[in-house]
Amino acid sequence: MVKSKRTKAGDLAIAFVCVLLILVCLLPMLNVLARSLSSTEYIIRNEVLLWPKGWNVEAYRLVLSDSKYTWSLAWTAILTVICVAVSMTMTILCAYPLIYRDLKGRRFFNTMILFTMYFSAGTIPHYLLYKDLGLLNHPLVLIIPNSLSVFYMIIMRTFFYSIPDSLRESAEIDGAGPVRILFSIYLPLSKPVLATLSLFYAVGRWNGFSDALMYMNDRRYHPIQLLLYNILNAVTSIEIQTQEGFASAPGISDTIQAATVMFATVPILIVYPWLQKYFISGATLGALKD
């Protein structure tokens, strides 16, 4: 009896730590959301904590009326859709043939692909190659060069392996070729991993900015994250000035900054709960060694 009581105390302590963890994960987002919806005077007086004060959607109106911003949002959405389509095609084309154990050269292809995971030429050789290929400042540079992730390819291959060979063999006896088998057996059975990897590729593209920073000078093709970075850093320089004693009022820029952050976060918050049940199984697959 005494023992079970002590266990219960332990359980409650663990639950308490988990509650703290949840708060640490969510409070920053709530705080920024509250700031984005508050009026400037409360922000300057440091009164906005987790709930908006002096309801104010001006910042969102300002951000939405900025054509630079709406274009960037639309362009990043288009880019993300294209990237997911290209990347998933490449990943399937790479993973599927490699599950045929009697494919000649399979070992060679596997080694060749895995080697790129451990050794990379580095940033500058890639930059110079894109320059020679004419990809610099071309929208394709944001789509093609990183369209295939070896890690995600391995996740997909591991999933394909989990589909019993007997299924494939019986289709072969019925006269189906590899392409037919891919479309009628493997892809329909792989929906969870297809959803997971699409999500991973989409998040990667939506969140990515370093390729655009390095290889794309044309601001029209800058994804949303890079625009966001410029907005945030314009504000930072003001803040540093105030800290060093210059007079300045960061109030308005503060709400705009908050609203911009919320805008770039919301798409992810919307898709997250829907895809969550898939990506956990996908990420676990990646953990298994081939």
């Binding site: 920053p28 987002m29 705080n31 920024v32 700031r35 969140n207 900015f209 994250q225 890079l226 966001l228 970075y229 945030l232 504000v235 930072t236 803040e239 503060d254 900054q257 908050a258 911009t260 952050v261 770039a264 976060t265």
Partner: peptide, 9 residues
């Protein structure tokens, strides 16, 4: 970038 934005605020 978003985390940096959250952190700066």
């Amino acid at each position: 970038i978003i985390i940096a934005g959250l952190a700066k605020q």
